[in-house]
Computed example of a mutant assay.
Amino acid sequence: MTIPRFYHPGALTPGSETALPDNAAIHASKALRMQAGDEAILFNGDGQNYLSKITSIRKQEVRVDILEAQPCQTESPLKITLAQAISSGDRMDFTIQKAVEMGVSIIQPIASQRSIVKLAGDRAEKRREHWQNVAISACEQSGRAYIPSVAPAIGLPEWLAQKPEADAYITLAPDAPTALAQTSPPGNNICLLIGPEGGLTDHEIELAAQHGFALVRMGPRILRTETAALAAIASMQALWGDFTR
């Protein structure tokens, strides 16, 4: 039987006692109907799982003893930074959730010319916090103990001017001369740029190419923004990552 996993934002030390965060406590006591003596796994993003045992459940409070730290071997050998143009509705949530499940390391929301959603100020920060929580929930479900960071949204030209160091920079274009599967195996550090609904403009594609991005295609069909990101990450994991384990 799978032991339930819960995110705990604080320090976790074997031999100590702690209370589950409110949302985790409600899930454990109400949805999972856990009882004193049941085991749980906590994680806080430091790369380890913490085997714990519930000691008491009182109203909204669930307390646990932290028994031991356990290494977590769920990280991909690939460090993929996903620079994802902001999409509308629940598409962005879906993309972040599934990208985290498939092992992405960093998520950089991008404001592109065709992005329908425009974010600024407090609204942008609230949206970033929401996306970070989506990433945390995906880690909780998928067994990851490192939490990918969701960076503040930034315009494409500004991000390209300060893009992170990587072994390979890749973006997708349906008419690109080279297929992803034909690309020479890069190093482990990959930066993937994905456009919004409607795709990147010709100017943006040219700008990305000027900053070292190689254009590759994912088959003969045009993919939706959320499909493109996930198909590319899955293909990278199958070609160069840990999907063959």
Results as ranks from 00 to 15, higher is better:
Ile136Arg: 10
Ala153Leu: 05
Pro148Gln: 07
Ala145Ile: 03
Gln141Trp: 05
Ala166Val: 11
Leu156Lys: 10
Tyr169Leu: 14
Cys139Ser: 04
Trp159Pro: 10
Tyr146Gly: 00
Gln162Cys: 10
Gln162Met: 08
Gly155Arg: 14
Ile147Phe: 06
Arg144Phe: 09
Ser142Val: 10
Leu156Phe: 12
Ser142Cys: 13
Val150Tyr: 05
Ala145Gly: 09
Ala168Phe: 06
Ile170Thr: 07
Leu156Ile: 12
Pro152Gly: 07
Ala153Gly: 11
Ala166Trp: 08
Ile154Cys: 12
Glu140Lys: 13
Pro157Trp: 04
Ile154Pro: 04
Gly155Ser: 15
Ala173Ile: 00
Ile147Leu: 15
Ile136Ser: 00
Lys163Ile: 11
Lys163Tyr: 00
Cys139Thr: 03
Pro174Ser: 06
Cys139Lys: 04
Glu140Ser: 09
Asp175Ala: 11
Leu156Asn: 08
Pro148Asn: 08
Ala173Gly: 01
Pro177Gly: 14
Asp167Tyr: 05
Ala176Phe: 08
Tyr169Val: 00
Ala151Asp: 03
Gln141Gly: 11
Glu140Phe: 04
Ala173Pro: 00
Ile136Pro: 04
Cys139Pro: 05
Ser142Thr: 09
Lys163His: 09
Pro157Arg: 06
Ala168Arg: 15
Ala161Glu: 12
Glu140Pro: 00
Ala151Gly: 00
Ala166Pro: 02
Ala151Trp: 02
Ala168Cys: 15
Ala161Asn: 10
Ile170Tyr: 01
Ile147Lys: 03
Ala138Leu: 04
Pro177Arg: 15
Cys139Tyr: 02
Trp159Lys: 12
Ala138His: 03
Trp159Arg: 04
Thr171Leu: 15
Gln162Lys: 13
Pro177Cys: 00
Pro177Asp: 13
Pro157Glu: 06
Ile136Gln: 01
Tyr169Asp: 05
Glu140Asn: 08
Ile136Phe: 04
Ile154Met: 12
Ile154Thr: 14
Thr171Gly: 07
Pro164Ala: 08
Gln162Ile: 10
Ile170Cys: 12
Asp175Cys: 01
Ala161Gln: 14
Pro157Asn: 11
Pro157Phe: 08
Ile170Trp: 05
Ala173Val: 03
Lys163Trp: 01
Ile170Glu: 03
Glu165Ala: 13
Pro152Asp: 09
Ser149Lys: 14
Ser137Val: 03
Ala173Tyr: 14
Ile147Thr: 02
Ala153His: 09
Ile147Asp: 06
Ile136Lys: 08
Leu172Gln: 11
Asp175Pro: 01
Ser142Trp: 02
Ile154Ala: 06
Ala138Asp: 02
Arg144Gln: 11
Glu140Ala: 07
Gln141Arg: 13
Ala151Cys: 08
Ala173Trp: 06
Ala153Val: 12
Ser137Pro: 00
Glu158Gly: 02
Ala176Ser: 13
Ile147His: 03
Ile136Asp: 04
Leu156Ala: 07
Ala166Tyr: 08
Leu172Tyr: 00
Ile147Arg: 05
Tyr146Asn: 14
Pro174Cys: 01
Asp175Met: 06
Ser142Asn: 03
Pro174Glu: 10
Leu160Met: 09
Ile154Tyr: 01
Asp167Lys: 03
Cys139Asp: 03
Ile147Cys: 10
Ala151Ser: 12
Ala176Val: 12
Pro152Asn: 12
